[in-house]
């Protein structure tokens, strides 16, 4: 259909009508054309369908995880010097007390080696998303339940990570289970824990670190959620939960210690 076939209406009329951009007079003029001329109405339906198809095709982009490089493009300009990381470590010393300090010094020692530690990376954001998406699930919060003994083996095999089922019962949290998640460079694993009394849930997100990823121990807060994250050789770990910082720290320390012990004892599966 070309516009010359229909001297009384044009594609521009239909297009602007569709966009709600005609003034009152023209709008009612096109209204009556659409009423009287089936070919105009048919044409309009096609244009509307094309518009809907375009929207549908691009809609998914809005909910895609934002690539790490875009997040860091916004964050890295922040004047976040080494002093801030030092302050974070100092904060840990105070909060963690004697038990924490030995750990913190280890972490700090590692930080000194890789002082260019970055701002919260994309994978940390994914850990937060994964937490927010799955912890509210009443029926299927996890993919494989903790009772199934193959959980650790399954996650280890699928992620190629030494997944250990950390025992957080001393801190009041029981393992519910875990799930496999997509991560930028491959797969990651999420373990979920629940406090039986308070019904609070925390997640541990495990992933293979990027090549030459900085080794850091950091705390960030996003709204209600707090998270501790760190990267060790072979594994990156984030602990996420809507808990006060001190309680999260206790859990993070427990996870860290158990991972170290497993490594030292050689019980962690080979990478």
């Amino acid at each position: 259909m070309s516009q010359t076939d229909h001297p009384d209406f044009t594609d521009t009329d239909l297009s602007a009508w569709l966009d709600g951009e005609l003034d009152v007079d023209n709008h009612s003029r096109v209204d009556s054309i659409l009423r009287d001329r089936p070919e105009a109405a048919a044409r309009l339906r096609l244009l509307a369908a094309d518009r809907d198809a375009l929207r549908a095709r691009l809609e998914g982009v809005l909910t895609e995880p934002v690539p790490e490089r875009l997040l860091s493009a916004v964050r890295r300009q922040r004047s976040e010097g080494p002093w801030l990381r030092a302050a974070a470590v100092a904060g840990l010393l105070v909060l963690g007390g004697v038990a924490g300090s030995a750990l913190t010094w280890q972490w700090q020692g590692r930080q000194l080696v890789t002082a260019q530690a970055g701002t919260p990376a994309g994978w940390v954001q994914r850990a937060v998303y994964a937490h927010s998406v799955f912890t509210p699930e009443p029926r299927h919060p996890v993919e494989v339940r903790a009772q199934e003994e193959h959980l650790a083996r399954w996650l280890t095999r699928r992620t190629d990570l030494p997944v250990k089922l950390f025992d957080l019962r001393d801190e009041g949290f029981d393992l519910m289970g875990g799930r496999l998640l997509p991560d930028a460079g491959g797969k990651s694993a999420q373990l979920m824990y629940e406090n039986a009394q308070t019904k609070e849930r925390v997640t541990v997100y495990l992933r293979k670190p990027d090549v030459d990823a900085p080794t850091t121990f950091r705390y960030v807060r996003q709204g209600d959620l707090g998270l501790f994250y760190w990267v060790e050789p072979g594994i990156g770990c984030a602990l996420v939960g809507a808990l006060p910082k001190e309680r999260l720290l206790a859990l993070a320390q427990s996870v860290y210690k158990q991972h170290e012990q497993a490594e030292a004892a050689g019980t962690a599966p080979p990478r």
């Binding site: 375009l54 691009l58 809609e59 982009v61 809005l62 909910t63 895609e64 934002v66 875009l70 997040l71 916004v74 964050r75 300009q77 922040r78 004047s79």
Partner: peptide
Amino acid sequence: MTAPAAFREQLLGAIPRLRRYARSL
């Protein structure tokens, strides 16, 4: 002087919209 944190937060929030427009192009 670098951009204030509030501005950055808004920028982060706008990324999905920017990505969609760029992908449409």
